[in-house]
Design a protein around this nucleic acid. Structure first.
Lengths: 425, 425
DNA sequence: ACAGTTTCCCGTAAATGC
DNA sequence: TGCATTTACGGGAAACTG
């Protein structure tokens, strides 16, 4: 028996395949009440043992250690916990031996660490744990890792962060984007290589002046990218991580109407905004951003359509678009036009002149800013004549002169797009 | 023992209270996997029996009958199925008797029929069954009711339909609304009283030319009302059920800008639209509706805000609102203004002239129709100069003259609301 | 093939635990 | 008391089933 046991131990190679999980992008995170599959494979084939090897599944086998940790919890696998391994029969006329009661073998294989969550809202933190663990240790089951988690270097963290994008989209993070993230974690510096980042800084502590950690903020942006703006991200249209100072520096020398896309730094839930250059009445260069769009808003309208349709609505209900060129100089139609649904055409068939019943008029939502900054003399939006009551603050005026921009746009009989000032072709 | 049993039977009154369900508006519908409570109450108090009466719960007790029905299913109650009744102790010095082993009593109480569903999407049909059953029988457990469901009269159905609104909102259905619904079920007629409606007509068969039944259509509208436009419904602002012919008849004599709110007849999911009067270039009265708004769209913007902000966008990017008076003659601001969130004011604090960092510009969605019907000569929306590529149909022109309406609205230096033609004060 | 029915499970909200 | 964690369940989608 001992001879046989040794034979088996040296002959078999056990390979545990990564579990086919609930969340394909986030294996190793298991949610209570949700099914997952896991596969154990023998790399050596013994036809004689077909249907003779029984696998028994259990969770937290070594919970003697785990139980010592405060607040640890016992999990159970529902359903049957044993299966017989079935190899494909190979009917070559080999000798066969039948084992009725096979000797129990202790063949072990280890997964990377697994995190159990009870609600999907715990996924960001669970995944952060997986990342930090695998970034800093090869130990297969160091249950005490997070009782005193080691620090990582910026170089390690940067690689992991970029991989979060490159593994689920067609594009990782550029040096510029990573430098912006480094500054968020470590403050201003010229070289972040070798700088140390603690687990607390990465995932536990809230960022200065914010109600959420660095990782929660970033992971919500990853989610935003994957679910709402994947195509634009893959195209490289989203600069995304750029400080407001650098944004100003690169936009200021550009012609008015040049804009870039940037993630919100203040929103926990993941937001995206655009920032553009314009010239105000006095000819001074202004940098403007809109309040970031959230997932909620992007549900009803794609970001490409928002960009294409965004208008500033002046006092006389005239719309002009301040967005012309995606930085550095891509006409916005070239970049975003192909991601906009073509507009529904009016149903001309029914519009017979003599027909009494009109068809439904098609509508669309557009995103507008009622109060352009060039009217800073009149910051009260009630002046805009949008007809909305209830926002009256008392100092309204019924007389409102046309702005230079409005007059300018009225000069265009060629109405492709009413642009502010200097950019008409 | 028999004497005691008889005493008990005559002394106790068992009252089954309606179950406190998963869906408060829809009791008697039970969903698998979801908890519910049910209460059995004794109307006569015997302090001596306190904590002596044991209740045993079961489902489908008489499943001998049920099992005979094709496709019937067995359900189980999870968790404990027995409870001891506890009455509040009354410590008046009464005589007491202790019964160690109480005689089993067959005290029965019946609920109205119960429908079990496995997904909430089955709720509309489940509730329809409850309604039809209770409308037409008092039998507490006629398991075969739906093998040959009896017909109802329009009078019965009308009462039930109105009750669906009055029991969950502050307003039932008017005679006019009910007449519109009768016409959908029974076709045109002058008097629907006494007309017969089959269960199939009510809930099983699709309506003519539609992919859904009468009840599914109506129940989605009830859901729309409750979740999205409850306040407007309670105010009586929603005419809702009105035929397009009658709509035309009542709107035509009204001044341009008069509008009413009507449910979509073509959308399964529940939709609402507005219809208004306007005069076209030739002075002819036109009746216009927008494509109905769905729950999806109302998620991002309330219907009141859509109504207040709705604009027609002409070729020169000028916006005008065709909606002025809610039928018969309520100014729209009076009706809907109070249901619009006040607009966020620009964050003036940060707008110091010397400050380099501008605040975010506030944005809002507005709902527009790019191609007004008065421009029927130019049905191609590409002509609108909205700058959207990709909808080019080949016959575009770069020259587009200003419309009379546009010129008219430009004349208003008093810009409260640019209205079409005859209604400015 | 297909329509009625059930299962699966995310994501919001509420409840519970610590 | 406040935060962390779990439970509850609607609703969209996929899977199942007769």
């Amino acid at each position: 028996v001992d001879l046989f046991r040794n034979l088996m131990k040296s002959a078999f190679v056990v390979e545990r395949q990564p579990c086919m999980p609930m969340h394909p992008d986030r294996p190793l995170v298991i949610k209570t009440g949700v099914q997952f599959t896991n596969k154990v494979r023998l790399l050596v084939k013994f036809p004689e043992l077909n249907y003779q090897l029984k696998i028994k599944v259990c969770i937290d086998k070594e919970s003697g250690d785990v139980a010592a940790i405060r607040g640890s919890r016992k999990f159970n696998i529902l359903g049957t916990n044993t299966k017989v391994m079935n190899m494909e029969e190979s009917n070559n006329g080999s000798l066969s031996a039948e084992f009725k009661h096979l000797v129990t073998l202790q063949l072990a294989t280890h997964s990377l660490p697994v995190v159990v969550i009870s609600n999907i809202c715990q996924m960001p933190n669970a995944w952060a744990s997986i990342l930090w663990y695998n970034m800093l240790t090869n130990h297969p089951k160091n249950v005490n890792f997070f009782t005193k988690p080691p620090v990582g270097t910026w170089d390690q963290v940067a690689e992991v962060l970029s991989w979060q994008f490159s593994s689920t989209t067609k594009r990782g993070l550029t040096i510029e984007q990573l430098t912006t993230l480094a500054e968020k974690l470590l403050g201003p510096s010229v070289n972040y290589s070798g700088c140390q980042i603690t687990w607390a800084k990465f995932c536990k502590e809230n960022m200065a002046g914010k109600g959420f950690s660095f990782w929660v903020w970033l992971d919500n942006i990853i989610d935003l990218v994957k679910k709402y703006i994947l195509a634009l991200w893959n195209e490289g249209y989203i600069m995304g991580f750029i400080s407001k100072e650098r944004e100003r520096a690169i936009l200021s020398p550009k012609p008015p109407g040049t804009f870039l896309l940037r993630f919100s730094e203040s929103s926990k839930e993941g937001g995206i905004t655009f920032t553009w250059v314009e010239k105000d009445i006095s000819g001074k260069t202004q940098i403007q951003s809109v309040e970031p769009y959230t997932k909620q808003q992007l549900n009803s309208m794609s970001f490409a359509e928002i960009i294409m349709g965004y208008k500033i609505m002046d006092a006389t209900n005239i719309l002009v678009s301040p967005l012309v060129y995606l930085f550095p100089e891509i006409p916005k139609e070239d970049a975003f036009g192909k991601y906009c649904r073509p507009e529904a055409q009016p149903d001309v068939d029914f519009q017979e002149p003599g027909c009494a019943i009109q068809p439904y008029l098609k509508t669309k939502f557009i995103c507008v800013t009622p109060c352009p900054s060039v009217f800073m003399d009149f910051p009260d939006s009630e002046l805009l004549g949008n007809g909305f009551p209830g926002t009256n603050s008392g100092n309204t005026s019924d007389l409102f002169p046309m702005s230079p921009r409005t007059l300018d746009s009225l000069m265009h009989t060629e109405v492709q797009e009413a642009n502010p000032g200097p950019l008409e072709s």
